[in-house]
Design a protein around this nucleic acid. Structure first.
Lengths: 243, 243
DNA sequence: CGCGCACTTGACCCCGGTCAAAGCTAGTGG
DNA sequence: CCACTAGCTTTGACCGGGGTCAAGTGCGCG
């Protein structure tokens, strides 16, 4: 037991937690600077390349993950091949915690990413001794749920342009709390990914981009670099967008 | 303090927990027969009539609820009036727990229903002294999340008939674990409610019902009483339906 | 018995899907 | 350094599923 901890300790990089994007968010945020090491030593830091899967739907949910950098996506693929991207995953997001013992979605890297990984059972055990962490897990779940409900509203009741406007605002919001620009949006995912997230086709997504661009609400520097020109109008367009 | 508990104790009906549909599910299910009273006495039992709101979106999330009987629905209404029903709420379901201090959706009674109500802060405080309850709250949240993800897949990637087939199977599943019939489906909600849940119009929902009926997958005794004739075929139709 | 409301069915139309072709850009190799 | 290629994106033309509008139909309730 001590040996294991010792082995992991050897893994620590120079600034292993200090410069981590996830350090003061969600899961890790509830740990003090004095106790974060105990959490760190319990898990393992690692990286994943673009296109690789972090875990697959149906597979035993052995591990839970906290994202340090990069971007991933949670996806579900129907038996006929139709794909739905549930959400994009940003640094600081905690994923992989399930009710039953199997993942309910797959997780794939949009771009090269870093993460910390814990055995689910070990983290749950650890949480039992740390009341605030247990509560944090619940809060995380509820946050995810809130976003998921937004997504349902989008898919059920909005047209193509409204969906894209909402998605861009959502991206803006996520960039803000990652300490990045509010208006310079980085979209590393492909049009296909966005389409599968918004329940549309690539062509329709592309046309929606063109439309917003023509109406001067956004500017497309490159397909993956969008500048928000008229934030207020974009909100009106997305209509029911909530912070 | 003692006085309050005493007052609530006076509220107890004859079989107040014993004959409750929610007694052995989710929230209450983690309490033993010996300790369920402490939870019961902390809250208040009440009823709500058809069409009334249990709580409204945006309002302070003062209370959390556990449903004893009847049916309710969680809905969100856009500023232009478009409505999306997030989910229908069955006996045993626990609702109202939010991240921030306001409800993110409204809850309305589909039919007359009974429920138990707690002050959120009091239940959370109570949970801190009851580890299994704290964990139960998390499990409940994850269960809800799993269903919500299913809903996203439906809305993003399925056509009208597939959506309805999925909805009927989901209803069947929920009736089973409420101890009701697997094939005789009770649909107390209106076609409008179903439409707003599946992201369709009443006309399309109606046509989908007719279609499934014509293809002998279901039988419509009355608009609100459906018999599942060919369960397997219905699953094939819904395609990606999961238990 | 008749009124009202929810549901069903039909006719038509439009948004977004499908199919096809033409840019754009990054990466490779001569 | 440039030409070539491959994959992604954009744009256009056409089509169809589901929305819209409107007219029945049936059932519960007074």
């Amino acid at each position: 037991m001590n040996k294991t901890i010792y082995a992991n300790t050897q893994n620590r990089g120079d600034n292993y937690c200090k410069d981590c994007r996830a350090r003061y968010r969600d899961l890790c945020g509830v740990m003090s600077d004095d106790t974060i090491y105990t959490l760190y030593d319990l898990g393992r830091s690692n990286k994943i390349e673009k296109g690789e899967y972090l875990f697959m739907e149906e597979a035993p949910s052995t591990y839970v993950y906290n994202i340090s950098s990069g971007m991933l996506m949670l996806e579900r693929i129907g038996s006929d091949g139709r794909r739905q991207i549930i959400s994009f995953v940003y640094p600081g997001d905690f994923i992989g915690l399930t009710v039953d013992s199997n993942y309910s979605v797959s997780c794939r890297a949009v771009e090269a990413s870093r993460f910390c990984r814990w055995k689910r059972t070990e983290l749950e055990q650890f949480a039992e001794g740390h009341q605030n962490l247990e509560k944090s897990l619940r809060v995380i779940g509820n946050k995810v749920l809130a976003r998921t409900i937004d997504q349902i509203f989008i898919l059920g009741r909005k047209n193509a342009v409204e969906r894209l406007a909402f998605f861009l605002l959502q991206t803006s919001g996520r960039q803000i709390n990652a300490g990045l620009s509010e208006t310079q949006l980085n979209l590393p995912m492909t049009r296909t990914d966005i389409a599968d997230h918004l329940g549309l086709t690539i062509e329709t997504v592309s046309r929606a981009f063109s439309r917003l661009s023509k109406d001067k609400l956004i500017e497309l520097a490159t397909p993956s670099l969008v500048t928000v020109l008229d934030h207020d109008q974009l909100i009106k367009c997305a209509d029911n967008y909530k912070v």
